[in-house]
Computed example of a mutant assay.
Amino acid sequence: MESISIMDGLMLTIVSMLTVFSVLLVLWGLTEMIAKFVNGSDKAEPAPAAAKPAPAVNTNNLAPNKKHQQVAELVALALASEDEPNKKLEIQESKRIK
C-alpha cells in the first residue's frame, strides 16, 4: 500500500473542493437562467426617476402579490389533501382574509 504525504493530501483536498464548488456554481447559474426564462413575463416595471420615495412597509396593508397567492393556494391544497392523497381538489375561489 502506498502512503500519501501531507502535501499530496492537501492538494487532493483543494482540487476536490474547487471541483465541487465549480459544479455547484454551474448548477446555480443554470437554475437562475431557467428561472429567468420561466418567469420572464413577471418582470416588474422600473420606477420612474421622479417618483416619490416608498412609504414605510406596514405588514397590515401589503398589496396582494400573485406569487404569494399561488404559494398560499398550493399550501392550502397540500394541507387539505394530507388525509386523502388520491383525492382530486380544485380551487374555485381565492380570497384574501385580513
Rank of each mutant, 00 (worst) to 15 (best):
M1G: 09
E2K: 07
S3K: 09
S3D: 04
S3H: 03
S3W: 05
I4T: 08
I4N: 02
I6E: 14
I6S: 07
D8W: 01
G9T: 06
G9W: 02
G9N: 03
G9I: 01
L10G: 01
M11H: 05
L12G: 04
T13Q: 10
I14W: 03
V15P: 00
L18I: 10
V20W: 00
V20P: 00
F21T: 13
V23M: 12
V23Y: 08
V23K: 12
V26L: 10
L27M: 11
L27D: 04
W28H: 04
W28V: 01
G29W: 08
G29R: 07
G29F: 13
L30E: 03
L30Q: 08
T31S: 15
E32N: 07
M33C: 10
K36L: 09
F37V: 13
N39F: 13
N39C: 14
S41H: 15
S41E: 15
S41V: 14
K43E: 06
K43R: 14
A44K: 15
E45N: 05
E45I: 06
E45L: 09
P46C: 06
P48D: 03
P48I: 02
A49E: 15
A49Q: 09
A50D: 12
A50I: 03
A51K: 03
P55D: 03
P55N: 00
P55F: 01
A56G: 07
V57H: 00
N58T: 02
T59F: 11
N61E: 12
L62D: 01
P64A: 04
K67Q: 07
K67L: 04
Q70P: 00
Q70N: 09
V71C: 00
A72R: 02
A72L: 06
A72D: 06
E73Q: 14
A76F: 01
A76R: 02
L77D: 03
A78L: 14
A78W: 06
L79P: 01
L79G: 08
L79D: 14
A80K: 08
S81T: 08
S81H: 04
D83T: 09
E84M: 13
P85N: 09
P85H: 13
N86Q: 14
N86H: 12
N86V: 10
L89Y: 15
L89H: 13
E90S: 08
I91Y: 08
Q92M: 12
Q92T: 12
E93C: 06
S94M: 06
K95R: 07
R96Q: 13
I97Q: 09
I97L: 08
I97S: 05
K98H: 05
K98T: 11
